[in-house]
Design a protein around this nucleic acid. Structure first.
Lengths: 338, 338
DNA sequence: GACCGCCTTGTTAACGTTCACAGTCGTGCC
DNA sequence: GGCACGACTGTGAACGTTAACAAGGCGGTC
């Protein structure tokens, strides 16, 4: 209707002219400022509607100094855990009216994490969630010179930044306790890669239960989370004698172990009982269906956004927090008495 | 030293003062403008370094009208396919110096896709990748009033927006041809949910090979991509007689089918051969390891960013393109002759 | 030697919003 | 009746960058 001269998207001033008010009044209407007469507000809203005006968030960010965007740094978002966590984060952030900007790292080390943080800070994000499941990544977060709120997910020791994580140690305990309760003499362990905090936590839980029960603690085998590494560990375990119960640090490796056992004629749970970790969607359909420990990634995502927003509203870093999400035990058919 | 009065981050003018030049010269150095004397450039760079100056990308975006940010709209990024695609997109985008802003949808319909696009457009993204594997999502993209480059991934018919996709039909053909080549009389099919283009494509490929070979075309069973739905389909198939070969539309459902078969005593590949689709990391460790069709999600991500950037540089939507990424056949142990 | 041109730098004005402040009313109170 | 105060609106100046234009210096050419 004669209001789109030049095909340039309308700006606040155009709306103001259309409604016969000043640009400031338009701004007030947009920001729900109380002191605007109802009739004026209506006129402005009509003008906005007529012109198809949309507020320019970039200009807004320039002056308010916040962009309503949060950054997420994550390791390989192809994996089930990180993908689910990021998903949870995204849902929670959008619900709170924030955008999510993602950086996905192929490998994590201090330099790369630092670069990613700088990169996001440059872009003007209001806060950053770092999904930092590795010790090196967690360490990259201490004495950060950034003056922007950060929260670590699975970030290890509560250091200078708040942390949200699943109680990995308790998960390891649950798995091991379950196997001992079934009557197994001791429990073998296929752990995750050395640098990973989750791997350490699960192994620590496993070890503590065995020690407290006065059982022998076998040397753990190490994998890299992949089914292939689980397969290799499974081949080793099948060659060993006296193995009746194995706690594998994630479901993907458990699948590999399962495969190796089947190839060697080791029956599960007939000969060996198996417990995994994560409860990926596939686990319930393994043969046999896998007993495992479920992590509530959605809760982790929500909690981390919660902590971050509290920091942002607070205006500064709050006393370093540590939120722990409990895991749950999922009993299926891969475990039985010896 | 002595240049951080008030703890305010330094701006271009501060650098200019420090280097004894105008802010414009600083801008020129930052943007690699050719006409700056080497010595001047050095002085500016030193000043930048000394002050720890970082360019404000928000202010830059305001005046240049591009934010070097791309939006991604995707369906449930927890699934392996979308997650991998988004990962590929992110890698490619960052390599090209772009940020990625993500919106992950729980369910896809015209309204929600439209909202997501608006949301991203508001934020000032330079272009949007829509991972639109459903017919309804693809339809949401036609006659978009948006004046911002868009590319659809798995987006169906080459309509008004460019499309990048894996050749699902060919994948379905490969799977079916392989089974016929092994000597099976015909091939059953567990397809994906009705609205999904990928499901349709794979089913179409399957059907076309059977028809061309003059074989009977059994009524396909429908799943929803989940292992559970595959399990249910598997139970039905196990009850039917004459089933010797099944093409399942994704690996997760194939796992469910496998589980149902094992429970019913149907041997794979002894009694029935099975082909999946996707080649998720787990597939090689199923029992038996799954013959499947691999999709190169990384390539899809890269291609889509390529198309998008070409559009952005071009300044307008280019003649609607359709890039097809070929799938590859992965032979494992779940298939054999009848 | 004057003029043209390029290289280099600086000055000023956008970009589209919010913030700080200053008005202009109308109302109530002493 | 004057004055203070609240509600409402407008004016000007930020925010930090790039774009457009102008200007000075220096070399080369006829």
């Amino acid at each position: 209707m004669g209001a789109d001269r030049g095909r340039r998207p309308p700006v606040m001033a155009d709306v103001a002219r259309e409604a016969g008010v000043s640009h400031q009044t338009v701004s007030r209407v947009l920001n729900d400022h109380p002191n605007v007469r109802t009739e004026t507000r209506m006129r402005v809203l009509e003008a906005i509607d007529k012109l198809g005006y949309r507020r320019n968030l970039v200009a807004r960010a320039l002056v308010t100094k916040n962009s309503r965007t949060l950054g997420v740094v994550s390791f390989d978002t192809t994996l089930y855990g990180p993908a689910s966590t990021v998903y949870g984060i995204e849902q929670a952030a959008r619900a709170a009216g924030y955008f999510i900007s993602i950086v996905s790292l192929k490998s994590i080390d201090r330099v790369r994490v630092r670069d990613a943080l700088d990169y996001l800070a440059d872009q003007g994000v209001d806060g950053i969630v770092v999904v930092a499941p590795q010790r090196s990544a967690a360490r990259a977060l201490v004495d950060l010179p950034l003056d922007i709120p950060v929260v670590a997910v699975e970030g290890g020791e509560a250091g200078e930044v708040p942390v949200v994580c699943v109680d990995q140690v308790e998960g390891g305990r649950m798995a091991t306790r379950h196997l001992l309760d079934l009557g197994h003499e001791t429990v073998w362990h296929v752990r995750g890669p050395g640098d990973w905090l989750e791997a350490e936590g699960r192994a620590a839980g496993w070890r503590s239960v065995l020690e407290k029960a006065g059982r022998e603690v076998p040397e753990p085998l190490a994998g890299d989370w992949s089914p292939r590494s689980g397969y290799e560990a499974g081949q080793s375990l099948a060659r060993m004698s006296g193995v009746t119960a194995v706690f594998v640090a994630n479901d993907q490796m458990a699948l590999g172990v399962l495969r190796a056992f089947i190839e060697k004629g080791v029956r599960v749970p007939g000969d060996v009982s198996l417990v995994g970790f994560d409860d990926i969607p596939e686990s319930a359909y393994f043969s046999p269906p896998l007993t495992t420990i479920r992590q509530d990634f959605g809760a982790v995502g929500r909690q981390s956004i919660g902590v971050l927003l509290r920091q942002i509203e607070n205006g500064g870093p709050l006393a370093s927090e540590r939120l722990v999400v409990p895991p749950t035990f999922v009993h299926r058919a891969s475990t039985a008495g010896p």
